[in-house]
Design a protein around this nucleic acid. Structure first.
Lengths: 195, 195
DNA sequence: TCCCGTTCGTAACGCTCGTTACGAGAACCA
DNA sequence: TGGTTCTCGTAACGAGCGTTACGAACGGGA
């Protein structure tokens, strides 16, 4: 070792810079130079931590997954019963404050990039499958007498509804205020008999 | 006039090339050279029809709107009653065949680009507002006794559900087959009492 | 204290991009 | 038929990108 290398501190510094660039400028402007500028260092350090730009992208995708998982498990654990857990987990996808809005923006960016990038598409499929499995478990707990096809269909509808709300709110925050997003979610849960 | 300039034919040729590049390679790879290659001409012709790349982008955005509008009005006009019209208009947003899938892919690209592009964001807001107004009209026709807040909340939920389904299917076609998308839509309409 | 390995800033290379300038060629008018 | 004008292909420029190479700075072992 030499030259004061504080690895963990640099990791978090670069991850924060990565997230910031991604939220403010979008996926296609996630350049080595932009990350270096946001982190207050030079491209040399960035390239010393990541072999190439692609690794930077995949690390950002990993960060997105980590943050999503953390938030979801915290919400589910804090819920009193399955109904509250289902609503909390679904509401976590909405874009209702600064954090969740940037989260939705970053997610939208990776979703759009996945259509012409096999690796990102594969990552999306894995995480989306896990997300659906979680919802299936929760819906089954709330409505134990439903058939599996009814459960999966309801989960598809619920997942699509919250993700759709999130991306629409990401692109038009003023048109989708938090109250409207929550009202739409509550109306959907009530309509499906899951409220 | 000189040198055999068939304007309308070139317009459609370039529009088709534009759409093809957009569907196959995504918004960020929509370059002058890529469009010229897809159209089988040189960059000179493209730059003679469009002043710059931005005009190309905005024309593509306009194309997206035109195609959406055409498909929606045809479906609504062909419906027997308001319920059928509502379902048809919502189902038009799903990604169930080759055309609607590329449509969803292109729409997803512009949506993601809108978060860091004021002009595209404004265009998105205008068209999304018109889309919501159409849904409000149809839902009001199906459920005339609903309050306006109930109608707008239901419309938000319905719009988010179909757009969410479309973008999820665009990113993971195998995970969201046409039957699953239609089943989710039908379940949602039934749950809301609008089937 | 001297040397060495690690760390990271600096600068360059090649590539692709948008954009511009210029010239060749075809239609049209005289 | 010669000149003019519009059309469009060709080629170049500068900017920004990912990536690489190199060298300076710094801490630790001898």
């Amino acid at each position: 070792m030499s030259r004061t290398a504080d690895r963990p501190a640099q990791e978090t510094l670069l991850s924060r810079a990565l997230w910031q660039v991604l939220a403010e400028q979008g996926l296609d402007r996630l350049t080595i130079r932009a990350v270096a500028a946001a982190a207050g260092c030079t491209t040399g350090l960035v390239m010393h931590r990541f072999p190439n730009r692609r690794a930077l992208l995949l690390h950002a995708r990993h960060l997105l997954h980590e943050r999503t998982k953390q938030r979801m498990e915290a919400r589910e654990a804090a819920a009193a019963d399955p109904r509250a857990a289902l609503r909390a987990v679904l509401a976590q996808s909405l874009a209702v404050d600064s954090d969740s809005r940037t989260h939705a923006v970053v997610w939208l960016g990776f979703l759009a990039a996945a259509v012409s990038d096999d690796e990102l598409a594969a990552a999306h499929r894995v995480h989306n499958r896990a997300w659906r499995d979680r919802l299936i478990r929760l819906v089954s707990a709330v409505a134990p007498d439903w058939s599996t096809t009814r459960v999966t269909t309801a989960v598809t509808a619920l997942a699509a509804m919250v993700e759709g709300t999130a991306v629409l709110a990401a692109a038009d925050p003023a048109g989708y205020p938090p109250a409207a997003q929550r009202a739409a979610l509550d109306a959907t849960l009530t309509a499906h008999g899951l409220a």
